[in-house]
Design a binder for these strands. Sequence first.
DNA 1: ACACGTGTTATGCG
DNA 2: TCGCATAACACGTG
Length: 273
Amino acid sequence: MPELPEVESARAVIEAGALDREVADVDDTDTWVCRPHATGEIRSALVGRRLTVALRRGKSMWCETSSDGPVLGIHLGMSGRIVVTDPSGDPVEGGDRVRGLTATSPDRDLAWDRFTIRFADGGELRLFDKRRLGRVRLDPDLDRLGPDAAEVGVAEFRSRVGRGTAPVKARLLDQSVIAGVGNLLADETLWQAAVDPRRRVDTLDHDTLTALHRSLRKATRAAIRNGGVHTGEVMEHRVAGGHCPRCGAPMQRATVGGRTTWFCSVEQGPASG
DNA sequence: ACACGTGTTATGCG
DNA sequence: TCGCATAACACGTG
């Protein structure tokens, strides 16, 4: 799930529930997820401190810590979720509302908790991640991320996305170009703008890039508002036998930018967009 | 049993 | 060195 909208929800949960609480203990024993740190390294850096602010850029989020402590970087990967609980153990509302209750259910598989902060008040912040592709690290390097997809202005969007010769979808997925767009949000954006995902960016004119920017902002904000990228208009039609919800033509499948891609065979065909 | 996947990154090639 | 494509990563799910 985690693309920009889901990460923003996770950040908001941390902001609403995990700040200004003293860290009593940390479980950082999963050194696959807590890379490249040795067990105990993140723990000793955080115990006694408090998270002071929760920030996000694209799909990366991070927390600053008190007393000039290190920055705690968290990336959800493909399946990570953040759960914050109050002193009585109940989850803070606001995130994890997409689907699957296992992250918050009391009988969840504890092996899927890959990183846990225990607060002195008894509550916790957990990274729940079945696939283990999430990452937790101190002082993450964020320099290679492009501007946030929800914030980037149209002129910068056109100049960055329009550079090069890659297919437009691959360009949208490149986090160093624009940060936050994943496979589903890219398909939704391209469908909204009626642009062929396979089209090279050097064939896109000024107005098409402008339309893409508008569609991206619209799709991103709608997804944040509605609870995730799965709420996009074309999402349920990304299946074999699916049809374009606008014109009724068959949806077409291809691999673009290394990812499964669904698009309208007519409106997003080679002769359009 | 087997293919697939919402993300990132190392590697290879022109 | 740059831009781009692909494989690999871990592992649950259909």
